[in-house]
Design a protein around this nucleic acid. Structure first.
Lengths: 208, 208
DNA sequence: AATAAAATTAAACAAACGTTTGAATTAAAC
DNA sequence: GTTTAATTCAAACGTTTGTTTAATTTTATT
């Protein structure tokens, strides 16, 4: 449960992250990881105990600093809509940067096989929702936002839009002519982020 | 490539669909399927050739009638916004009804392991986008919709929102107190569908 | 009723899986 | 420099994997 991984452990986790994201947890063998990380197959059990525990370590390794980032955002002196926009920007940038682990979480989360690994992640989600509620309430108080907003359905729209784009990357790469990693990342950071911000803004200020 | 599956084949596909959706393609063994479907393990190879080819058969079996449904919608004499709302309703209901196969597609789509199975599905997506473009153009012509709409980013918002909700089902079940399958389905058909419709409407009529 | 075709079965196949072992090597502590 | 601990390794462990085989049973055809 600790965070003090040594250099070799981190290298193993990075390779595991890449392969799990590409081929899934069950689709990746310890031998795959060992080969790519250039280590002996026994090292995974030696360092992490088991393949399953390695996944747990990976989740902890990658999601430990999200909490802090969000709390800092809440403290800032900004208008509610500005905060929402910054929150979206933060989420998209962060998930885009760590797309590997989020793809894994996305996958393993919906799988009935591994429920144990994700309890700590559920806590993160609950805390994030409370933050969002607070911001939106603020915006409703000062008349910026509409009254009839189902806050619980905002995160699925933000995250869902982004994930769906990310998971269908090959399709959008072709459709938008984004041949390089740079151009794809640039599109995500600019166009897609703005689209999500625009969507949420329209939703928040829209009165039926 | 044909669609004439006999009763036994269909039963096998139904069990496979359920297990693949629950545990993933790699997480499900032919023995798992055989046991649940109460057949001999050799029957999968006998009927479909291989596990991989069975997945192909399953995709064909479940996605063959989507095309027709969409074409019928386009023909209807409705205002653009009405068509959009119906399209959202159709998508949500359809995917919710066949959540198994769409969950499988969602995963295998983003996996680098099985690219061959999904080519026909890409074609479906392209055709659907053209339909959407047509409807939105119609709405822009008669002044209902804003001019600066990136049509390509609409489907990720519709499908992404829905999928994210579906993939985090345990979380939303708890948060919304949806204890039975019926109450969950009801929430999807009513509240979630309306949320997506509202979101897309706000986005389409919103002028920056 | 005899024959041919289709369906089902248990058993076996080689290959790959996660994990453990015990010896060999390297690093740290004294 | 010796001893102790940590790391690395090849090899083997017992399971499980997807697939094939060959014999048997069921169904259909004549």
């Amino acid at each position: 449960m600790t965070l003090d991984f040594n250099d070799k452990q981190i290298r193993i986790l990075q390779v595991a992250e890449k392969l799990f994201a590409e081929k899934g947890f069950d689709g990746t063998s310890i031998r795959n990881i060992s080969k790519e990380a250039k280590i002996n197959i026994a090292m995974v059990s030696y360092y992490f105990g088991s393949k399953e525990k390695m996944l747990e370590s990976l989740i902890i390794f990658r999601t430990s600093d999200l909490k802090m980032q969000l709390e800092n955002l809440l403290k800032e002196a900004l208008a509610p809509l500005e905060k929402i926009n910054k929150l979206i920007e933060l989420y998209v940038a962060r998930i885009n940067k760590n797309k590997g682990i989020y793809q894994i979480l996305h996958f393993e989360l919906s799988s009935k096989k591994r429920q144990t690994n994700i309890k700590s992640f559920t806590e993160v989600k609950k805390r994030n929702l409370e933050s969002l509620k607070q911001i939106i309430h603020e915006g409703q108080e000062n008349g910026d936002f509409a009254k009839d907003i189902n806050v619980l359905l905002i995160p699925p729209t933000i995250l869902g839009t982004f994930f769906h784009f990310q998971m269908n990357r090959p399709y959008y790469e072709e459709a938008l002519g984004l041949k390089t990693d740079e151009s794809f990342d640039s599109y995500v950071h600019n166009d897609l982020t703005k689209h999500i911000q625009k969507t949420i803004k329209a939703l928040l200020i829209y009165e039926k």
